[in-house]
Amino acid sequence: MSQLLKLGIPKGSLENATVELFRQAGWTIRLSSRNYFPAIDDEEMACSLIRSQEMSKYVERGTIDVGIAGRDWVMENDSDVEIISDLVYSKVSRRPARWVLVVTQDSPVQKPEDLAGKTISTELVGFTRRYFAERNVPVEVEFSWGATEAKVVEGLCDAIVEVTETGSTIKANGLRIVETLMESTPVVLVNRQAWQDPWKRRKIEQLNTLLQAALRAEKMVGLKMNAPHERVEAITGILPSLNRPTVAHLYQSDWVSIETVLHEGEVRRIVPELVKLGAQGIIEYPLSKII
């Protein structure tokens, strides 16, 4: 029997973005509302849908060889796994999620130490307990099943530890951020024994390389054009590129073909300039991977 890599796909907020990222990287994952084992077009891999909050537990015990989950939940579970890379999904957010210590606007608390002897409500119980224990600040940490912000507003606790990106919702609820305790992005995490297996390591490295290549290609496009040879210096002088633009002579002609890679937001600015400099036949095309 051939070897099999067991892959964990995060169920929930990252689910669709992860499947789309795999599509860009070269794998088709087919989800079904009726089961937790998506099909993947790779006979050397098998998928399971697992909540990000639990992913690191299954990876640590080896039920899953490699998975994707938020770094925050790896830290919450204090899991002994190998984190090999970060994945920042532009289709979810370009900002890391922040877990912040929050109080009401009129609270006397100005720093974490001011909460000694107080009660904190959060979903991130393990991490919060360790955070305050490392600073020798005695607090009572309670698990919150939801509506965490309302608990501090209603006086059911003295502070909360909540996740945010911009902090705007926290401000809108009349609350104040005391301190950021952790920043989190999705990560690729690997079982340590799987990482030591030569076949699985090669497969995981292939997977990670192509996922990172797909991420690098997001919002990037290729631009190709023809131009007179005497205009090459002027045109390449304004072209952004990963290294330097590619210039190739056209067959039996004193014209050249110029090709580069740039952010799609730059195209609308730069194309009119290229036309003024004599570029013709300008083509923009999408990119799926940059390696």
Rank of each mutant, 00 (worst) to 15 (best):
E113R: 14
R129W: 03
G67Q: 00
K224D: 14
Q24K: 15
L262C: 09
V92I: 15
V163W: 04
V267T: 12
M75V: 14
I204P: 00
T18F: 08
Y131P: 08
I238M: 11
A97M: 15
D254F: 11
A248Q: 15
N243W: 12
I177C: 09
K151W: 05
Y89A: 04
L210S: 02
I204E: 09
K203E: 09
R23Y: 14
T260R: 06
V275H: 08
A17S: 13
E123F: 02
P112E: 01
E123V: 06
R268Y: 13
G167V: 00
D254L: 12
G26E: 05
A46F: 00
C47N: 04
S107M: 03
T169N: 15
R231S: 14
N77T: 00
A17D: 10
V141L: 01
T209P: 06
P240R: 12
L262N: 05
V267H: 06
I83N: 10
M182P: 06
I282N: 06
D86N: 13
S184H: 01
S184W: 05
E259Q: 15
I270D: 06
S79V: 09
S184R: 07
T148D: 00
T185F: 09
I238A: 08
L31G: 02
E123K: 08
N208G: 03
L175A: 01
T185C: 06
R61P: 00
L207H: 09
T63Q: 13
I84E: 08
L277D: 03
N191F: 02
V163D: 08
P112N: 06
F127K: 04
T18G: 09
T166C: 10
I120D: 06
